[in-house]
């Protein structure tokens, strides 16, 4: 019983790393910028598709591919914000929500056309041989996912806490007018935040291709899960989003393991309902946020 429980825990942490990366990106776009981004799952899949183009088709080294994907998707995110989100800044939630719905419909179907409708794996340099620690099984790819997740999360933390851009971001999202007064280019901060969020989702997409397979149909569930995790984490709370992602991964895994796999996806949504009713500022905030 115990060894099975430990295996469930490890399984949950792997899934949780994906959730955390997705949610970290969405916490910036949805939590900070207040854009209900329905294309987040598509950004995620796009990361995998772009990686496939470089890694499998052009034969670029896997690790170099990750760097290229991050750079390209960062630029794509910035362009998306500039062209689609900026003109609608300050308008009703519905306007930006719909533009991202349009974007998601466009992206998903265009990817089906160009990438093809068949699922594909990424040529990642990991052995599929399981690593067995006691009774627990894990693979190189899965370990790598956890490591990349951790690195991305620490890097984000440093970026936000220690860099000039991070300070500008914090100032902008705390008090926009004041930030503008002290010379912060608010529009630029918005665009960079959106780009960062997009790149974060794309990293998760590369990992998806390395550990599982890339297929456009995964986008919708990924978007929904990311929203759930952002709420668990407390909306604007970036470390909270990470903790929320890991927590959801583990809880789902334990629930699936000991109760019912059919109802596994219900957990997240049920948690959202309870949290919003009793702790609307997330699980990890000591006091109401912004």
């Amino acid at each position: 019983m115990l060894d099975v429980a430990l295996q469930f825990l490890v399984n949950g942490l792997v899934t949780g790393s994906f959730y955390a990366l997705m949610a970290l990106g969405l916490a910036m776009i949805f939590g900070l910028m207040e854009v209900v981004n329905f294309a987040h799952g598509e950004f995620f899949v796009m990361g995998g598709v772009v990686a496939y183009a470089f890694c499998n088709v052009l034969g670029v080294d896997f690790y170099l591919t990750i760097v290229i994907v991050v750079a390209l998707m960062f630029a794509f995110g910035a362009a998306t914000d500039y062209l689609l989100i900026r003109p609608l800044r300050g308008q009703h939630l519905l306007s930006t929500a719909l533009v991202t719905i349009g974007l998601s419909i466009f992206l998903i179907n265009t990817m089906l056309l160009t990438f093809g409708t068949s699922p594909q794996g990424l040529d990642a340099p990991f052995s599929r041989k399981p690593i067995i620690i006691g009774e627990i099984v894990i693979t190189e790819g899965r370990l790598f996912a956890i490591v990349v997740g951790a690195v991305a999360i620490v890097a984000t933390h440093i970026l936000i806490q220690k860099t000039r851009l991070g300070r500008a971001m914090r100032a902008t999202f705390q008090q926009k007018e004041a930030a503008a007064l002290v010379g912060v280019n608010v529009e630029r901060v918005y665009t960079l935040t959106f780009a960062l969020g997009t790149a974060m989702a794309a990293i998760a997409g590369v990992l998806l291709g390395a550990v599982f397979v890339i297929h456009p149909s995964t986008a919708e569930l990924a978007t929904l899960k990311a929203f759930v995790v952002v709420i668990l984490g407390g909306m604007t709370n970036l470390p909270g989003a990470v903790a929320g992602g890991l927590l959801l991964g583990v809880v789902e895994s334990l629930w699936g393991g000991f109760v019912s796999t059919g109802y596994m996806d219900v957990i997240g949504f049920a948690l959202v309902i309870f949290i919003l009713l009793f702790r609307p500022y997330g699980l990890f905030a000591p006091r109401p946020g912004r």
Partner: peptide, 24 residues
């Protein structure tokens, strides 16, 4: 009782729970 973003998400959560119950 909730507004803005929280309302968006909680209504979505209700619909999804219902859909999953109907399937299962």
């Amino acid at each position: 009782r909730l507004d803005g973003h929280y309302f968006v998400l909680i209504t979505l959560a209700f619909a999804e729970v219902l859909r999953l119950v109907v399937i299962n």
